[in-house]
């Protein structure tokens, strides 16, 4: 089992959620759902997080912030969009200030359905995101290897 699967650290950002999904995210941490079973820790710090949980639709004001948090996370990283709003903007999709779901700003790996999303499905989303991270890690290693080989070959040519 890859280490990332056993220790996915989370950061949670409320884009412009009605707080329904946020409460369910917090519920995941309580004894009933106990996200720490999967090695999850909710850090407040993007630099220490592996999986980005976003709730709510993205609007013009917070799009740069979503982008910024995403950029500060170490590679590889995964994004989980939680709830209907995070998927498409939900009932707010047509609002003048809403740019749409999370995917309008950053690439999303897992969508968790629901309005609000259930804690069980949020946990499921996190576990899936961890698996995706594992794949990304593998791919990253492969590219790095290829790069190194390429550089070596370049050096040999010279």
């Amino acid at each position: 089992m890859s280490s990332i699967e056993r220790s996915p650290w989370l950061i949670h950002y409320d884009a412009s959620s009605c707080n329904g999904c946020d409460i369910e995210v917090l519920a995941c941490l309580t004894p009933v759902y106990d996200a720490e079973r999967f090695g999850c820790i909710v850090t407040g710090d993007p630099k220490q997080a592996d999986i980005f949980l976003v709730t709510g639709s993205v609007n013009h004001l917070n799009a740069p912030i979503v982008k910024n948090i995403y950029d500060q996370m170490p590679e590889p990283k995964a994004v989980v969009a939680i709830g209907a709003c995070a998927y498409s903007g939900g009932v707010f999709a047509e609002c003048y200030n809403v740019s749409g779901g999370v995917a309008s700003t950053i690439p999303v790996d897992v969508y968790v359905p629901g309005c609000a999303a259930k804690p069980e499905s949020i946990l499921d989303g996190v576990v899936r995101a961890a698996q995706i991270l594992k794949e990304k890690e593998k791919a990253m290693r492969a590219t790095r290897k290829a790069e190194r080989k390429g550089r070596k070959a370049e050096g040999a040519q010279r």
């Binding site: 280490s3 650290w9 720490e36 630099k47 590679e75």
Partner: peptide, 21 residues
């Protein structure tokens, strides 16, 4: 709560060293 496995700190540490930042 059930809590993490006993070896969780080691998983965390191993993961941290695989990150690129």
């Amino acid at each position: 709560r059930v809590g993490p496995p006993l070896l969780q700190p080691f998983y965390d540490l191993r993961k941290l060293f695989t990150r690129r930042i």
